[in-house]
């Protein structure tokens, strides 16, 4: 199986630089997480990989050759904003999309039958797509992505808008595809989701790659500076620790806190304070930081906050 190589790719839209000199690669049998807040350039990058747009500079190779119509036929793409032709019947829709990917009509029809069967959806074949529920349409969308047996799969925010059953189904599909040695690219701004699935990550911010590599290495590189506490009783000590500049609070609820140690703070200090203040301490764990925190650390706290705010107002892209 082949791998995907993105090297020094730049893409401008008018005066905006959407992707700035980005390089990374994805290998077969592994899942690459393309991460970053909205507006980081993930979708712009994906559109170049899928040959929907072409880079202004740099090159994208798949299997050693520059991507083009030939590689589109070997890629399956599940875009962030998903949709189907409403008035087409389900099977007809799948066959049409399959033939656009280079399948013959007969092949496409056979595979559509196969996949509809696998998703317990054989009965939907002659229904109009608009008659299906949203969850059913999501399944049809997965089938459309997989129908032509692609060796490179690209999922853009795959879990957004999925109901829990389909989210599980998709997770299983993605893991199965990985076992089959396909190359999988998975873009998301929901970093905690990606963490569970990815082998490698490529962290993007404002069109740049700010961090990339195997997830395990990265986690090690950032050390065990994160504490997870679960307790009962007075949680005022967390405020005090933060006020004294000893820790930064990542997440916090009534009985749980996730803290990042400030430089020079001994983990023990936090444990002592917690034991003094709380009625009961169930969990005290020193661990590697979650991706969210790594991201904040890499781009800086102020920058990260600004990006989050921008992402909340700007359109996706």
């Amino acid at each position: 199986m082949a791998y995907l190589d993105v090297s020094n790719v730049t893409k401008r839209y008018g005066d905006t630089v959407a992707v700035d000199d980005v390089s990374f690669s994805a290998e077969p049998g592994r899942i690459l997480g393309l991460l970053g807040p909205n507006g980081a350039g993930k979708t712009s990058t994906i559109r170049m990989i899928t040959y929907i747009t072409v880079p202004d500079a740099g090159g994208i190779r798949y299997d050693g050759e520059t991507v083009g119509p030939w590689s589109q036929q070997r890629m399956g793409y599940l875009p962030e904003e998903r949709g189907l032709y409403k008035r087409l019947r389900v099977k007809e829709q799948l066959v049409y999309l399959g033939t656009l990917k280079g399948l013959s009509k007969a092949e496409a029809a056979d595979r559509a039958d196969h996949w509809l069967g696998r998703f317990d959806a054989t009965g939907w074949a002659d229904m109009k797509t608009e008659e299906l529920s949203k969850g059913m349409q999501q399944k049809i969308q997965f089938i459309a992505t997989l129908l032509h047996d692609p060796s490179l799969l690209i999922f853009d925010e795959p879990f957004s808008g999925l109901d829990p059953i389909n989210a599980d189904l998709l997770r299983d599909i993605i893991l199965e595809l990985r076992r089959e040695d396909r190359t999988i690219l998975f873009a998301s701004h929901r970093m905690e989701q990606v963490e569970q699935l990815c082998d490698d990550i490529c962290l993007m911010a404002r069109g740049d790659v700010v961090l990339r590599g195997p997830l395990r290495d990265i986690k090690e590189q950032f050390g065990k500076n994160t504490l997870v506490l679960e307790f009962d009783g007075d949680d005022h000590f967390v405020d005090q620790l933060e006020a004294e500049g000893l820790v930064r609070v990542n997440t916090r609820s009534a009985h749980r806190a996730e803290l990042t140690l400030a430089d020079g703070t001994a983990a023990r200090t936090v444990l002592d304070r917690a034991l003094d203040a709380t009625d009961e301490l169930y969990r005290y764990e020193r661990t590697a930081p979650p991706l969210n925190e790594i991201f904040v650390e890499v781009v800086g706290e102020d920058e990260a906050r600004r990006m989050q705010e921008e992402a909340a107002t700007a359109p996706a892209g």
Partner: peptide, 17 residues
């Protein structure tokens, strides 16, 4: 319709616009 349905992005990942 194709654009507001968002199906267009799938289609142009298979054929040229």
């Amino acid at each position: 319709e194709e654009k507001s349905n968002r199906v267009v992005e799938i289609v142009v990942s298979s054929v040229r616009p």
